[in-house]
């Protein structure tokens, strides 16, 4: 039982990181209709920005906040330079541009900071707390707390602020929103900035503790894709639920695969999210909470 609880806890901690990444995908998809493959690159750069600031001796929390702001500015700039000119062109062109951007950002980080794993110097390290006979790493508790905070902040922004209402209006009907005087360009820029800031939090929590920071981090964002599909591509709440489910599935598969699925091969938990994604596309292509716009042909 305690093994199950520990695996579930690890799954929720992993899932809350996926939720942050998936929410970033959803925010950009809602604003522009583009699936943003460069998100992993933003996450990587955000984590490296934080690392660079911490390396100067800055307190951890301040460094993360500054890195969020820096990555947000970077994300908005990338959108302005590389994606704004594609407005009005076929969506597939914009998707391809984000794929190209992912490769540029990955190599930018690799060239500046190298291939070696770097420790972020986070305050949690390898500490654990024990409740009953369940051992929980402190960094996972913090991850869940930070993710919950970031998600709550985003949903408050979306629900109660002027820009949040404008974002929802644009997602619901871009042309009607435009007719009301909402600047589509500004919404897109803000969406990219918010997504990049969330990606930074995700990147830092992924790289915290023993995991350390290396360029391979950006592939993690690709594993958050299934979370977005599972929740529904245009549903922020769905992204969170999808992220948690994917995290749990991955953690439990890793824990129990040898007993339950011995024939599936080593490390099958790495691809389980994609298996879940393909299954959900078969039965509910619009995801758990997405708009039922998707239609079979």
């Amino acid at each position: 039982m305690s093994e199950f609880l520990e695996l579930s806890f690890a799954g929720i901690a992993l899932g809350s990181r996926y939720a942050l990444v998936a929410l970033g995908f959803v925010i950009i998809f809602r604003a522009t209709g583009v699936i943003n493959f460069a998100h992993g690159g933003l996450m990587l750069l955000g984590a490296y920005f934080a690392y660079a600031l911490i390396a100067t001796g800055m307190p951890f929390a301040l460094a993360v906040v500054l890195a969020m702001l820096g990555t947000a500015a970077f994300g908005a700039t990338v959108e302005r330079v590389a994606l704004r000119p594609l407005v009005g062109r076929p969506v597939y062109a914009a998707i391809m541009v984000t794929v190209g951007l992912l490769f540029i950002m990955e190599q930018l980080a690799t060239t500046i900071w190298g291939h070696n794993a770097l420790t972020l110097g986070d305050p949690w390290g390898l500490d654990t707390v024990t409740a009953g006979d369940v051992v929980m790493p402190v960094k996972d508790l913090w991850t869940i707390g930070l993710a919950a905070l970031a998600l709550a902040a985003f949903f408050v922004l979306l629900r109660y602020t002027r820009i949040g209402v404008a974002m929802r209006a644009t997602a619901a009907d871009p042309e009607a929103a435009l007719a009301q005087g909402i600047s589509a360009g500004r919404i897109t820029a803000v969406s990219w900035a918010i997504a990049a800031a969330l990606a930074t939090v995700a990147g830092v929590t992924f790289a915290a503790g023993p995991n350390a920071l290396s360029p391979g981090l950006s592939t993690v964002a690709l594993i958050a894709f299934p979370a977005m599909i599972l929740g529904g591509m245009d549903s922020p709440g769905g992204a969170v639920v999808g992220g948690l489910i994917i995290g749990l599935v991955q953690s439990l598969t890793a824990g129990y695969q040898e007993d339950v699925l011995p024939w599936a091969g080593e490390n099958v938990h790495h691809v389980m999210p994609f298996v879940v994604m393909i299954l959900i596309l078969l039965v509910r292509p619009y995801g758990l909470f997405g708009t039922r716009e998707v239609r079979r042909i």
Partner: peptide
């Protein structure tokens, strides 16, 4: 499915 679902499914396909 209508839309850009192929790009997502084939991404999963690469890993699987």
């Amino acid at each position: 499915l209508r839309g850009n679902y192929l790009v997502i499914v084939t991404l999963g396909l690469v890993f699987i």
